[in-house]
C-alpha cells in the first residue's frame, strides 16, 4: 500500500449550519511525502485535520489511515500536533514523557531527551513554569519523538517567533523517514514552501488543487506563495 492517508467523498456539515465545512473531498497522501494543506482561515483545514484524528465524526464519506478506519489502530500510527497547547500544567516534562511512552509503543524516549537537552529544557520542571513559546516547543518535541507513520501538524509555526520557526522546520526535516509522511496546515507559506513535496489548496471546503510543488514552480514560473496569492486573491 503506497498511501498512508485516503479520503473518499469526505463531507462534514456542522450542526446548525447549512453550508458544508468540507464538501465531498477525495484525495490520497503517499508515504514519505511532506504535504502542505494551504488555504485561508475558515477553508476547512482544521476540520479536515480533526476528522483525520477522530476528534470529529464525518457526515458522509470515509477516511483511512494506513488502511485502518479512524479508531485506536489509526491513532496509534498518527502523531498529532494541535494548533493550541493542550498539555496539563502541573505535570513535569519527565512525567509527560512517561505518559507518551506508556501509551505509544513508537515513542523514542532517547530522541525526546536529546531534543530537550539541546534546548536546555530541564525535564524536572513543571509545564506551567515555561513560556508560551517553550511550551509549544515541548509539545512539538513530544509529537516528533514518535516514530509515527503520519505526522499531522496544525499550524505548527503560526504565532511563533522566526528563530523558533526555523527550529521547527529543521526538526520536521530532521525527522524525515522514507516511510513516514507529514501533513501540515499553514497560511505562512514562504517559511515552509521549500520543505513541501506536495501541496493541497483548499477553499470553502473543496480541494481546488493538489500537485507536487516543484511542478507548480515550473508550470507557473513563480513561488508557491506568489501562486497562492493569485489563486486566493480577494
Amino acid at each position: 500500500m503506497a498511501e498512508i492517508l485516503s479520503l473518499d467523498h469526505l463531507t462534514k456539515v456542522y450542526k446548525g449550519s447549512d453550508k458544508p465545512a468540507l464538501d465531498d473531498i477525495t484525495l490520497t497522501i503517499g508515504k514519505g511525502r511532506i504535504v502542505g494543506l494551504l488555504g485561508p482561515n475558515g477553508s476547512g483545514k482544521t476540520t479536515l485535520i480533526k476528522l483525520i484524528n477522530g476528534l470529529l465524526t464525518p457526515t458522509a464519506g470515509e477516511i483511512r489511515v494506513g488502511g485502518f478506519a479512524i479508531g485506536p489502530e489509526s491513532k496509534a500510527i498518527v502523531s498529532y500536533l494541535p494548533d493550541r497547547f493542550c498539555l496539563p500544567g502541573d505535570t513535569s516534562v519527565k512525567e509527560l514523557i512517561g505518559f507518551y511512552r506508556d501509551f505509544y509503543s513508537d515513542f523514542d524516549t532517547e530522541r525526546a531527551y536529546g531534543m530537550l537537552e539541546s534546548l536546555q529544557i530541564d525535564p524536572l520542571s513543571r509545564i506551567k513554569t515555561f513560556s508560551k513559546g517553550m511550551k509549544e516547543k515541548i509539545q512539538l518535541i513530544l509529537v516528533m519523538s514518535r516514530r509515527a507513520q503520519l505526522y499531522v501538524l496544525d499550524e505548527p509555526i503560526a504565532g511563533v517567533d522566526p528563530a523558533a520557526r526555523d527550529y521547527i522546520i529543521r526538526t520536521i526535516i530532521g525527522n524525515y523517514q522514507p516511510d513516514a509522511s507529514v501533513l501540515l496546515s499553514t497560511h505562512l507559506i514562504t517559511d515552509v514552501e521549500n520543505i513541501l513535496d506536495d501541496v493541497i489548496f483548499i477553499k470553502e471546503g473543496k480541494v481546488i488543487l493538489s500537485s507536487p510543488v516543484e511542478e507548480l514552480r515550473i508550470a507557473q514560473g513563480k513561488s508557491l506563495d506568489a501562486y497562492f496569492r493569485e489563486v486566493f486573491s480577494c
Binding site: 484524528n53 477522530g54 476528534l55 485506536p72 491513532k75 498529532y80 493542550c86 498539555l87
Partner: peptide, 13 residues
C-alpha cells in the same frame, strides 16, 4: 477540554 485533544487521540477507544 483542551486535554481532550490528547485523550481522544490516544490509541484507545
Amino acid at each position: 477540554g483542551d486535554m481532550g485533544y490528547v485523550t481522544n487521540t490516544l490509541p484507545v477507544s
